[in-house]
């Protein structure tokens, strides 16, 4: 659909953009859940409120928007645990990168804002492959529930960097997969460059999901399927010229996190990608992202079953 946008803009080189004020109906906030559980890692649940579209939001406003007065429980079908409220300002420094990665913020961002999430350091509640986890949240008289599973991981068949003929020294990350027979397998791709800039800082402090990072096997069920992804970290990389944005560079060390996910998680991520891609496009229909949180809650309670691999681009 974006090509149609190109065409319209191609045909109207004179288009202009201006700020406007819209009169929107009053907005009623909803609870937003950002929760995940992975093998060997404790459950993390971040709660916040959705916000009015045109509300100005400072760091303080955002900080006050996190919910810290809820009771959060995780159940594995046998036992139940109540998660503790843990704030980033009280985390030992070595935990900051781990939490940042889990919550999708960079460690430097976490230093500017004190985020409080619900979790537990009880190793008995670290994620286990094959388990299903139920989430229960009690907040201001309302109950919100959700369920997710950590499926069996399905590893990549191959993973390799391929230099492009017309852009020497740069290329995409390629992979192949033997998809198990049976419709419904869904996957997510995230990457991180672990090598460093000349000043010693890591290129990608956290894993980054590229655009359209999730897909299922609707069109290649049971087949050996190949694809490639661009480098999502390159777009904010000031050391890379515009004409090589999107590429990995010879010399990059790239960690790929390849996760198997269940259907509701895939649907959420699929629609999230679609909404981000459509943002503002006149040619897209408005899409609300289907949440797996009950009682009109927003967000996602997600079980990820990852397979990790590392490639040195050469």
């Amino acid at each position: 659909m974006k090509y149609i946008v190109y065409l319209i803009l191609f045909s109207s080189l004179t288009s202009c953009i201006q700020d406007i004020t819209l009169d929107l109906p009053p907005y009623e906030t909803k609870i937003v859940v950002e929760g995940r559980i992975e093998p060997g890692i404790p459950p993390f649940v971040l709660l916040s409120n959705s916000l009015d579209l045109f509300a100005s939001t400072s760091v303080n406003d955002l900080q006050n928007n996190f919910i810290t007065n809820a009771q959060v429980f995780v159940n594995n079908g046998v036992d139940t645990v109540q998660l503790d409220l843990i704030c980033t300002d009280s985390l030992p420094p070595q935990f900051i990168p781990i939490v940042a990665e889990l919550l999708g913020y960079s460690p430097s961002e976490l230093q500017n804002i004190n985020i409080c999430a619900y979790s537990t350091f009880d190793p008995n509640w670290f994620g286990v492959v094959g388990m299903t986890y139920n989430l229960e949240i009690y907040h201001e008289g309302e109950i919100y529930t959700s369920t997710t599973s950590i499926l069996n991981p399905i590893p990549l068949d191959s993973l390799y960097f391929l230099e492009r003929d017309n852009v020497p020294g740069f290329g995409y990350m390629h992979a192949t997969l033997n998809d198990p027979p049976g419709l419904g397998n869904a996957y997510r791709w995230e990457t991180r460059r672990t090598n460093h800039y000349s000043d010693g800082t890591e290129k990608d402090p956290v894993l980054i999901a590229p655009f359209n990072s999730s897909f299922d096997d609707q069109f290649f069920d049971g087949l050996n399927f190949g694809w490639y992804y661009d480098n999502p970290g390159s777009y904010d990389d000031s050391t890379m010229a515009d004409n090589v944005k999107g590429f990995y560079q010879v010399g990059d060390t790239v960690v790929v996190k390849w996760s198997t996910i269940d259907h509701p998680v895939f649907e959420f991520l699929r629609y999230e990608d679609a909404q981000i891609a459509n943002g503002g496009s006149p040619f897209a229909s408005p899409i609300n992202i289907p949440s797996n949180i009950s009682n009109n809650g927003l967000g996602l309670w997600a079980g990820f079953s990852p397979y990790f691999d590392t490639v040195i681009c050469q």
Binding site: L24, P25, Y27, T29, K30, V32, E34, S48, N49, S50, L51, D52, L53, L103, G104, Y105, E109, A209, E272, Q275, I276, G279, P286, I287, N288, I289, L298, G299, L300
Partner: peptide, 14 residues
């Protein structure tokens, strides 16, 4: 009418 954050992405509620 509203927005929220998920993994650092700004998502909209129509």
């Amino acid at each position: 009418e509203g927005w929220y954050l998920h993994e650092g992405n700004v998502l909209y509620e129509y």
